[in-house]
């Protein structure tokens, strides 16, 4: 882990309120693995105060990308950064996704901006021998649907769900996951998910019912990011764990929901 000044290569709005930032930071990009994250300082003012955690969206040493939604003051400031600006970044933090060592079916389940770290995962998976990889992407509507193209370009079977039916099926991503299990016999994939807590709870329930392994990248407010402040705890079956140090990827079967 290191703290470096990265250079913004580009920062553009890919969908309304969703931005893709590319940062050049050789020493940091070289260490990053899918599922890990970094924290970024959004400005020099004292408000917003804390660094913002973002998952690696694409890793391409000496550069990497982050995909983020503008949800508050911090991400608004990030969205205003221009190519050439320097950004104070700290990472990579946490543990990445555990890539299955034996060929397995894989289902990626993404909800909203939760798709961001799953693209980096898909890039790694697509380069290995796996039986089949499915990506299920859920979004509010067509305007907020992210990364469909990225998965398709990797040759991944991509299934889309929107709340209003403006793209793909009108249902939740978890319905498509459920249907995949119903349609296939002897289907025992590894599931990787990231998205809203309600979606992850449903993914956990489906995985338990179908006896499938499921991992998710979880979110919590982060202060230090290095395991010092103990602020980003989540509850698991074996007690409190830290998102920054023990996660952010957790076995969904271990997570105790609030």
């Amino acid at each position: 882990m290191k703290q470096v000044l990265g250079k913004v290569v580009s920062n553009s709005e890919v969908k309304p309120e969703y931005f893709l930032m590319e940062i050049e930071a050789p020493s940091l990009a070289g260490e990053a693995k899918p599922g890990q994250f970094l924290t970024i300082r959004c400005g020099n003012a004292t408000s917003p105060l804390l660094r913002r955690p973002l998952g690696f969206h694409r890793i391409n040493d000496p550069r990497f990308q982050v995909l983020y939604e503008v949800v508050g003051k911090g991400t608004r400031l990030l969205s205003e950064m221009k190519a050439g600006n320097k950004v104070d970044i700290l990472g990579p933090m946490g543990n990445g996704f555990k890539i299955p060592d034996k060929p397995k079916d894989v289902v990626i389940v993404a909800g909203g901006i939760g798709v961001a770290p799953l693209v980096a995962l898909a890039e790694t998976l697509a380069g290995k021998k796996h039986k089949r990889i499915y990506a299920v992407i859920g979004a509010r509507d067509r305007k907020s649907l992210l990364c469909e193209r990225d998965f398709r370009d990797m040759g991944i079977e991509t299934l889309v769900a929107t709340d209003d039916g403006s793209c793909g099926r009108k249902c939740f991503a978890t319905q498509i996951l459920e249907d995949l299990f119903s349609a296939k016999r002897d289907f025992s994939p590894v599931i990787f998910a990231c998205g809203p807590e309600a979606m992850l709870q449903k993914v956990a329930a489906i995985a338990r019912k179908r006896k499938a392994e499921a991992y998710a990248s979880l979110e919590e407010n982060i202060a230090c990011g290095v395991g010092a402040c103990l602020g980003c705890a989540i509850e698991t079956r074996s007690g409190y764990k830290l998102v920054c140090e023990d996660g952010p990827v957790f076995n969904l079967n271990e997570v105790v929901w609030r």
């Binding site: 917003p48 105060l49 804390l50 202060a223 103990l230 602020g231 980003c232 007690g239 409190y240 609030r258």
Partner: peptide, 23 residues
């Protein structure tokens, strides 16, 4: 000590609140 139930931190204007609970 296992500490307090999450969420344990939140940012506030020019500050932050924590309730780690001496974990």
């Amino acid at each position: 000590r296992e500490g307090n139930a999450p969420p344990r931190i939140v940012e506030t204007p020019s500050g932050m609140l924590n309730s780690i609970g001496l974990q």
